[in-house]
Simulated scan of single mutants.
Amino acid sequence: MALLKPVLVAAATVLVAVTAAVVVPASPEGDAAAPPAPPASAVFHPVVREAAARTGDYAAEYTVYRPADSDRVRGGLPVVVFGNGACRHTSNDELLTLETLLAAHGFVVVAIGGFDEPALTENGSPEPAVITDAITWAERENGRRGSALRNKLDTRRIGVAGHSCGGIEALVAGADPRVKSVLSLDSGFFADGTLGYGRENLRKLHTPTLFADGGPNDVAYANSGENYDLVTVPAVRVTNPAAGHTGFVYGQRDGNPDPGVREEAARVLVAWFDFTLNGNRAARGYFLGAGCGLCVTPGWTVTAKNF
């Protein structure tokens, strides 16, 4: 399941479109049966990065990554809200590449942090409202006159994700009934409730949840595994010990620059939300079943339960 080579966005810039040709076999019944949607990994849209319209009093400012050619997309686009490591609520440079790639594969990403804020070494505390307010923002934009996203979102398909401290925010926000999928990246609740949220919150999850971590050198490794063991929802845990705590985000393998690690992490993100928000069977096979796609990718281990 190869991702196409990404082109990074600059501020409020539309990229040159790159699309993958998808060949659908002819239906024996002619046009009566609609062809299945291609997997998200086979699609690559130009992406716009822009400031979220300030249409309400929210817990944070947001930056939006969206397909520039959304008029050509059949049906509404799923939404993924992304929280930053260190619970950075002002800047949002950390996950720029992953968020751009996710949007390029057909998702609208609402990132915590202001569009034109400089890169900051900010360290905050978990505020799950920054995630749930972003969902409310998306719902309002979908119906607001003048919105570039008006009637283009499918607010029945909303995922939440976060890295490190932002993963705790996403896990808490996963209790929201509007959420249909959760992704915890190098994160998890501490046994003693450090940062203000304990593992009792895992009982509030009601949707499929993915825990991704960078192995024993990842400071979140123990929490990731122990949280996975405790959840009762359908769950997957994926581990790549070469990544450590930030390799998925910054493209590092065993502490050395290697963008391939980040590309592999992007495949995981795209496939997870394609599976859990879009119901794509090919994406499901990336995580589940004998010889699953990620299972046979060198360096990765995969476990799953409750499916």
Rank of each mutant, 00 (worst) to 15 (best):
A52T: 12
P35N: 06
R66W: 02
R237C: 08
A32H: 02
T246G: 08
A34G: 05
P126H: 07
A119T: 12
D69E: 13
V43F: 01
L149E: 04
G251T: 09
S147T: 14
V110H: 04
N278K: 15
R178C: 02
N278M: 14
A104P: 13
K180Q: 13
Y65N: 00
N227S: 15
V130I: 15
G214H: 07
P28W: 00
P28R: 04
G56H: 07
H206L: 02
V18K: 12
L4R: 05
K152F: 10
Y221V: 08
G198N: 12
V23N: 08
L95K: 03
L120T: 14
V296F: 00
V80E: 07
Y62A: 01
L288D: 11
G162T: 05
E127N: 15
V130L: 08
G260V: 14
P241E: 07
Y250H: 11
P234E: 12
G244P: 07
V270M: 01
C165A: 11
L77E: 06
F107D: 01
W272Q: 08
R145W: 03
S147K: 06
R150W: 04
A191P: 00
R281P: 00
K305T: 03
G244V: 09
G85F: 09
L8F: 10
A220C: 11
G114E: 02
V270I: 12
